[in-house]
Design a protein around this nucleic acid. Structure first.
Length: 612
DNA sequence: ATCGAATGTCATTCT
DNA sequence: GTAGAATGACATTCG
């Protein structure tokens, strides 16, 4: 992808992106100069020249690859091409060991007559429109598709494949280009976009059939890696080839080291698949495809699926099996787990017990072995490219589509877009589930957010074939619940899920009640507050009224006092001065005229009358 | 794009 | 000790 974007984009942004990738030690499969050079070329619009060169080189490539193929044979065990006496195998061409998977640029010396620049040029020429589109964060499927078609996995040989009748230019992409695309695809953002697109495709159930760019788009992300799963992955056939492909593509970048070796070994074969639907048919001779398919069910399926899925999906025994309602779902998971890079590098499905047995090995009583949380984990496999797709499946298909023949296994995965720390909420689930799942899973918040799963627990219960209704699980009294549980033999995962459902259901109701209660408390407190405020107002007004009354009474008393005082006369008929005398009443009711001077003395005696 | 309400879930404590 | 209730805290969704 990087390559394409760079090539396609003449803007400085692209170069910046390249620089960033470079700094991040991301191998684009070509030297840094290549991009610049290509960029310049494009800017100068030397298309004609390029075309001519391309044709020549394509011819050369074809010839060279043919010769190589005739001479070389892929050793699956070592993953290396070894010279073989009979030139029977059309596939082997690359002299280079499949180091490709390691993101190291292809050593195209022999096979690639075309330089990376040339490839870029071709790409640019062929996808002029797409170039503009690439600029957007979420690449259009169309844009991505082109690169995807040419996967890293492609061996040098592939370019040699009949370019003449090329329906789509992407075929010509060199391994480097493909690798670059892989790199780009591995970017979280791009992957997200891809995932979204994939989901859309799934929902519509319209599989890319035609060669039209649009149709092809969905496929682009797919890489031949799907083959890795081998026979087990056959189930994948049910799934649109796109998914499988996408998974493959992502894997290379994300796959753990150990897986790389396997990937490498199979890479050559995978190449056949990597071509998207249209590409596969066009580029790879039927013979080649057949070979690959025969050897690797996935490959064969992919190739066929790409072109034929819509009309006649290649159903393998596995597929049929998957068709069964419950099983399909489980199987999907199995496949997913099996494919998980962690489990077995995602290539050799046999290594992982669950994965290896497409049948319901883990299944046992019909449950997969993972609880509700497991399901989620599936979605969030950290470090596994599959995570996204698995999520897609779980989301789109698990709940409602259990009955559908969709085998989830197919979405082997893209590199996980972003490993996000799991929400703490899932601790318990994870712990429970960890025992069940082979591969470690991490849950990612985004996944959950994006999920619009309505009754999640219901879906989970469905997935694990729990024979109880959610309502029963949650609302039955303990005794009845235990009785019900005892009547059915549930595996560990189912029990865990039932417990979780009951716990969550109870807690949900409790939370609702709690909130209701809280609201009621709030309302009650608010009412109480209002009444208290009213009381306060009333008391305040009463207080003010009392103060007013008191003031009035004091005034009246003062007036009365002065009146009485003014009526007093001494022996000579003179009035007493209020400043010198005061009227005081004794305990027995008698009134005394007390001189102010004696005030100190009389104080203790009576307070009834005091001079103003 | 942001915000807040509603809701679900988890962890913890209480019963 | 277990199950459930209660509740705070956080996450997610939706308008």
């Amino acid at each position: 992808m990087m390559m394409d974007m760079e090539v396609l984009h003449s803007s400085q942004q692209d170069m910046d992106l390249i620089d960033i990738l470079w700094k991040q030690d991301i191998d684009l499969g070509a030297r840094r100069e290549v991009f610049d050079y290509n960029h310049r070329q494009k800017e100068h619009e030397l298309q004609r020249q390029r075309e001519l060169e391309e044709e020549k080189k394509l011819h050369l490539l074809r010839e060279q690859e043919k010769a190589l193929l005739a001479q070389l044979q892929l050793d699956e065990e070592t993953g290396e091409y070894i010279p073989r006496p009979p030139p029977s195998a059309p596939m082997q061409s690359a002299v280079t060991p499949l180091e490709v998977t390691q993101n190291v640029g292809f050593t195209q010396e022999d096979s690639d007559a075309m330089s990376f620049d040339e490839c870029l040029q071709l790409l640019a020429e062929t996808f002029p429109v797409e170039e503009t589109e690439n600029t957007s964060v979420c690449l259009d499927t169309t844009v991505v598709s082109a690169p995807s078609s040419s996967n890293i996995m492609m061996s040098p040989e592939q370019p040699a494949l009949s370019p003449g009748p090329l329906l789509s230019p992407p075929q010509r992409m060199s391994p480097d280009l493909e690798q670059a695309w892989m790199e780009l695809l591995s970017l979280p953002e791009l992957q997200q976009c891809l995932t979204m697109q994939m989901e859309d495709t799934l929902e519509t159930t319209t599989y890319p059939l035609s060669n039209s760019p649009e149709v092809q788009n969905p496929n682009f992300p797919f890489y031949p890696m799907t083959n890795l799963t081998d026979g087990e992955t056959n189930n994948l056939n049910v799934c649109p080839a796109e998914f499988i492909n996408t998974f493959d593509g992502s894997v290379p970048s994300m796959a753990p080291p150990d897986s790389v070796s396997q990937m490498e070994a199979k890479a050559p074969q995978l190449n056949t698949n990597f071509g998207t639907e249209s590409f596969g048919d066009i580029f790879y001779p039927s013979t080649i495809l057949e070979e690959s398919s025969s050897q690797h069910g996935l490959e064969g399926n992919e190739s066929t699926a790409i072109s034929d899925i819509p009309n006649k999906p290649p159903f393998t025994p596995m597929d049929l099996y998957s068709l069964s309602p419950g099983d399909a779902f489980d199987r999907g998971k199995h496949n997913l787990t099996a494919d998980m890079p962690d489990s077995d590098s995602g290539i050799s499905s046999n290594t992982s017990p669950n994965a290896s047995s497409p049948a319901k090995s883990a299944y046992g009583d019909g449950s997969f072995g993972y609880s509700d949380s497991d399901m989620e984990e599936m979605d969030h496999n950290p470090g596994s490219a599959e995570s996204d797709y698995s999520e897609m499946f779980s989301l789109n298909f698990q709940p409602d589509d259990l009955n559908t023949a969709i085998t989830v296994s197919a979405p082997i995965g893209q590199p996980q877009q972003q490993q996000e720390k799991k929400p703490k909420q899932y601790k318990t689930d994870q712990a429970e589930e960890s025992g069940h799942n082979n591969a470690p899973f991490t849950k990612d918040k985004q996944r959950r957010r994006s999920d619009v799963r309505l009754p999640r627990d219901e879906q989970r219960a469905k997935a694990l074939k729990i024979p109880f209704t959610i309502d029963m699980i949650i609302n039955l009294p303990v005794d009845d619940f235990n009785e019900m549980m005892s009547k059915h033999q549930l595996n560990e995962a189912q029990l865990a899920l039932v417990r979780d459902i009951r716990r969550r259901g109870k807690n949900k109701v409790a939370a609702q009640n709690c909130r209701k209660r809280k609201m009621e408390n709030i309302v009650g407190l608010e009412g109480e507050l209002d009444s208290l405020r009213e009381e306060k107002e009333r008391l305040l007004s009463e207080k003010s009224q009392n103060i007013t009354n008191l003031k009035e009474m004091k005034q009246q008393l003062n007036s009365l006092y002065l009146e009485v005082f003014s009526m007093l006369r001494d022996e000579k008929g003179n009035s007493y001065s209020p400043s010198n005398y005061s009227l005081q009443q004794s305990t027995d009711g008698s009134i005394f005229l007390v001189p102010r001077i004696k005030k100190t003395f009389t104080k203790s005696e009576d307070n009834h009358l005091s001079p103003l």
